[in-house]
Structure formats: C-alpha cells, structure tokens
Simulated assay, not measured.
Amino acid sequence: MTSPSELPSTPAPTTEFEIFRGLHYRDQPLVLPNAWDFASAALLATEGFPAIGTTSLGVAAAAGLADGAGVTETETLAMARRLAGLPVPVTVDIEGGFHEIPSAVADFVKQLAACGIVGVNLEDGRAGSALAAPDHQAELITAIKNRTPEVFVNARVDTYWLSLDHSSTHDRVRRYAAAGADGIFVPGLTDRTGIEQIVAATDLPVNVLYSATGPTVATLAELGVRRVSTGSLLYRAALSAAVDVARAVLQDAPVSSGIVTYPDIQRLLPAR
C-alpha cells in the first residue's frame, strides 16, 4: 500500500492566471467585488478579497460615458493599467470587446494581458438591447484564447439580463464552452431551478450576479455556482452613500460613522 507521503502532490499554482482559475474550483464560490477606480479596488484588496473585478458601468459613468455602448475602450485600458499592480488577480469587464472583428478583440485583450490582467468578462449583449449572433460571439472567444491562452474568459450570456430569447441560453452556453471559454456568466438569472439547469449544462464554473432578492451566497454554493459577482452594486451604493452624506451636511444632520479616513486612502496610493 502506498503511504500518503508517497502519493504524488498537486503542483501549486505558479502564475496569476492559475491562481485566479483555481479560485473558481474551491469549496465555496469566489465572491468577486467589482471596483470602478484604483482606490475602490485597492481598498477591497486590503479587505482580503482574493481577486478583484471591474464594473463597466462604474468605469463608463466615471468618465461621463454610457455603459454597454462600446465607447470606453480607452478608459478600460487605462483602468487596467492602474489596477494591474494590485497584489491580487484582476479581471476586467470589456463589454462586448469594443470591436466586432475577432482579431481586433484579441488584440485588445492581448494589451490587457501585457499589463498583467488575468481575466476578462466578455458579454454577448450589444448596444440597443440586442444579442450578438452566438456563432460570431464564439469566434471572438476563440480568437482571444488563441492569442492569450492565460487569460480567463468569462463568457457572459445576456439572455436574462436583456430579457431576450431565453430559449437560446443553453445553446449559447454550449457554444461558448466549445469555443474555449473558461467560465460562464448568466447575469439576471435568479431562479433556483434555472441556475441549477445552467450548472448542469456545462462543466465550466458558472458565475451569477448577486441580487439582494435572489438566493444567498450559501444557497448559490449549494446550487453549484462557482463565482458570485457584485457588478455595479458597489458603485451604485457608493454614489448613494455620497448623496446621503451631502444631504446630512446640508440639513445639519448626523453623518454616518465608520467612513474611511483621508490617511486610510493615502496609504492605499503608491508613492511616486
């Protein structure tokens, strides 16, 4: 009988990509907070979150631009360059890839990878509340993985998010998995049975968007979900909190305690 000491050991992850990918195969789902600037990302990293994502709404709105319109390529790349130095893996929301030509999308992701980004969120929703053709979206995924295999492609299926063509969801999941995706993301899906069916339809880790009215993280874990994203929730909560404080000052009312201090923020910022 082989003793435990003689059994082969599993090699420890050696790259940021392997570390990030491994976070999707643990006993508990990866709770991925989505940041919108350097300070929010750095603060979340100091709180112990093992990986950070970005929210395309936060990045776009901070620049005065519309989300989901494919107009924030420059802002997204600039944000990626700032966040890549964080001590945890970073994945970036790139909307639909900012291009429809597969080689151009792959070129953009290559730039992100060169910065140190380990993952992208690629959605099949398009401006005007439309869905990309699944075969074309599959081509984009394949082009990315062929160019940068060590980038985790989280293939987002927007049938529920846009309330369009729910019947094509499983087909899209299968096509994107076959195209080389590393994960499947179905935002807007909060029904337990629907989530279970998606999990059963693919061997890839399934990502859902957290919803305050949907299943708890513990329940999502029981359903087989491997990643739970906050999306734009943190950004919207921060804006709401800022307005609440401004109103309190205007009305000479008490300001909420526990607000992060100026020195706390300063300590997050790299010395130049």
Rank of each mutant, 00 (worst) to 15 (best):
14 T>V: 13
157 V>W: 00
166 H>K: 13
192 R>G: 04
207 N>V: 01
84 A>K: 05
49 F>I: 12
255 V>E: 11
92 V>R: 01
160 Y>L: 04
178 A>S: 12
123 E>V: 07
179 A>K: 03
46 T>F: 03
184 I>N: 03
135 D>K: 08
219 T>S: 04
199 V>D: 00
30 L>W: 04
83 L>R: 01
166 H>M: 06
183 G>Q: 00
119 G>P: 05
167 S>W: 13
156 R>A: 05
173 V>D: 00
155 A>R: 01
261 T>G: 07
247 R>M: 08
25 Y>V: 06
96 G>Q: 04
8 P>A: 12
116 G>F: 05
39 A>D: 12
7 L>F: 10
156 R>G: 07
233 L>Q: 12
54 T>M: 12
139 E>L: 10
157 V>E: 03
133 A>P: 08
167 S>M: 09
239 L>V: 10
199 V>E: 03
196 E>Q: 10
225 V>N: 02
47 E>V: 08
246 A>I: 10
12 A>Q: 14
263 P>L: 10
76 T>Y: 06
118 V>D: 00
190 T>W: 01
64 G>I: 11
118 V>H: 02
25 Y>H: 15
269 L>Y: 11
107 D>P: 04
111 Q>T: 12
249 V>E: 11
193 T>W: 07
43 L>D: 05
14 T>M: 03
54 T>F: 07
224 G>F: 06
175 R>M: 11
181 A>D: 05
100 E>Y: 06
9 S>Y: 14
265 I>P: 11
143 A>Y: 01
160 Y>W: 08
61 A>T: 07
161 W>S: 00
20 F>R: 01
123 E>L: 01
108 F>I: 05
84 A>W: 00
120 V>D: 03
49 F>E: 09
152 F>R: 01
35 A>D: 07
215 P>G: 02
222 E>S: 13
78 A>F: 08
260 V>H: 09
104 A>D: 07
27 D>Q: 15
178 A>C: 12
135 D>F: 09
256 S>M: 14
213 T>L: 10
187 P>W: 02
81 R>G: 11
150 E>C: 08
58 G>C: 09
110 K>Q: 12
45 A>H: 05
201 A>N: 05
47 E>F: 05
55 T>N: 03
137 Q>D: 11
193 T>A: 14
205 P>G: 09
124 D>R: 02
58 G>N: 04
185 F>L: 06
241 A>L: 15
126 R>S: 13
61 A>I: 04
33 P>Y: 00
242 A>V: 14
234 L>T: 06
168 S>K: 03
163 S>D: 15
255 V>P: 02
102 P>V: 01
33 P>M: 03
270 P>Y: 04
207 N>A: 07
97 G>Q: 07
236 R>S: 14
244 D>Q: 15
42 A>I: 06
44 L>I: 11
4 P>R: 13
138 A>C: 10
77 L>A: 05
186 V>K: 00
102 P>N: 00
190 T>V: 14
240 S>N: 15
138 A>F: 00
21 R>Y: 14
158 D>V: 03
150 E>A: 13
66 A>I: 13
49 F>Q: 09
106 A>D: 08
184 I>M: 06
39 A>G: 11
108 F>K: 02
120 V>C: 02
81 R>L: 08
151 V>G: 03
185 F>W: 05
122 L>H: 02
43 L>K: 09
253 A>F: 04
